[in-house]
Amino acid sequence: MNNNAIIHYQAAFAQSIGKQRDHNEDSIYVNTGLSFDNSGVKAFGLFIVADGMGGYVAGEAASSAATNASAVSLIKNMMIPFISDVMTDNMMSLHEAMEKSITDAQQAVVNLAPGGGTTIITGLLLDHQLTLAHIGDSRAYFIGRDGSIVYLTKDHSIIQKLIDTGEISEDEALSHPNRNYLYKAVGRDNSVKADIVTHVFRNDSRLLLCSDGLWGVVNENKIIKIVSKAKNIQIACDQLVAEANKAGGPDNISVILVESREIAV
């Protein structure tokens, strides 16, 4: 980056009920920003995809309750201090703030959507640090401009575990009766602990967050191809959703793509 340029994050998203469901149980949250202070320009972003479960009302209520509660929690505990640039000796670490956002999401689901459950994948970008928290089988990927793909999360699904241990094959997994079986979900247990990890978000890649409505039906090569060929990330999001629907659209589809942009000033 040259000295006269500032980095900021640009995000795009797309969503669809799919072809076989009559209601949408997915929720998303997208927020990017910039702040200026003495030490320079700071870019930030917060992105969430949640895939609810538990039937008509509960699933929808669970995913939106979890999404909103964790967004509010992170804005309060991380983004406001980040923008106001206040560092105190009892400040939360990024990982602690992420943990808190999941606890808050859990509480919100128990209160607002009893009986419901939801997956959640949250990406918090502060400068170039991407911190992810996830529970369930919604996923995050880095898609490089060179056509590479890095899968950043590991599903909390039994099927994934059974594949990993060689108990069943990838093909068998497609028709396995417990295909949708998650061993972790927000709202389904008294305490739930997310996988939290921090990565460096490099200029040469894009961040993709999505529900299983996308990755369950569109394979990685196709995803890479669409993202690399599309004129911009909004078109890429729309094409990804269209591709999932073309493949039958068996589930709700949610997609968020994020890239960093350099702006000359």
Partner: peptide, 11 residues
């Protein structure tokens, strides 16, 4: 800590 900003990533 994030080496550019000093923010605590984890402890």
């Amino acid at each position: 800590l994030d080496k550019n900003s000093g923010w605590i990533i984890w402890r």
